[in-house]
């Protein structure tokens, strides 16, 4: 690298800057520049060993696109399964209710209910006959009419 004439550079400066001079005030750890070269060489060989496919995948645009596709694929694949499962569970609930209702049905209660209806029918007929007799109605005539 070419440097300009130091006299031209420094002498043209104001007094304060001129008196400070342009010495480097910073330091580095001992043997730093020997290890720096090795560190750089190591990093470069690490990069070279990494498959180009990994570099391709790690590119931001590719990463976001693949992530978006995965999310969409997840919903496409799993949403129908989730909704079917939900319907199944709804059916199961109704089946359960029906099953529970009939499994707990008492047979004696049913007999009692039917018998009760028969008794009601008989009592209704008796009531009707009493009414007709009380009103002096010709039962035979009604029976013929009904035929």
């Amino acid at each position: 690298m070419k440097k300009t004439n130091t006299t031209e550079n420094i002498d043209s400066l104001p007094q304060t800057l001129h008196s400070i001079g342009n010495e480097n005030p910073f330091r580095v750890p001992e043997n730093y520049f020997d290890t720096l070269r090795i560190s750089i060489a190591d990093k470069i060989s690490e990069k070279r060993e990494t498959s180009p496919w990994i570099h391709f995948i790690l590119k931001k645009e590719i990463f976001y696109t693949v992530s978006l596709c995965c999310v969409i694929a997840f919903f496409v694949i799993f949403f129908p399964i989730i909704s079917t499962h939900y319907n199944d569970s709804k059916l199961s609930v109704s089946d359960y209710v029906i099953e529970e209702k009939y499994s707990s049905f008492d047979e004696d209660m049913l007999v009692a209910f039917l018998t009760e209806n028969e008794e009601d029918k008989t009592s209704d007929n008796d009531y009707l006959m009493d009414y007709l007799l009380h009103n002096d109605t010709d039962i035979n005539l009604i029976m013929e009419e009904l035929k």
Partner: peptide, 24 residues
């Protein structure tokens, strides 16, 4: 060749950067 390039310029480049970022 790259090793030689690093060796040739590492100090100049380092000091240029160091003056900018201050911390070693």
């Amino acid at each position: 060749a790259f090793n030689l390039i690093v060796k040739k310029y590492q100090q100049k480049i380092y000091w240029h950067i160091r003056r900018m970022v201050i911390d070693h």
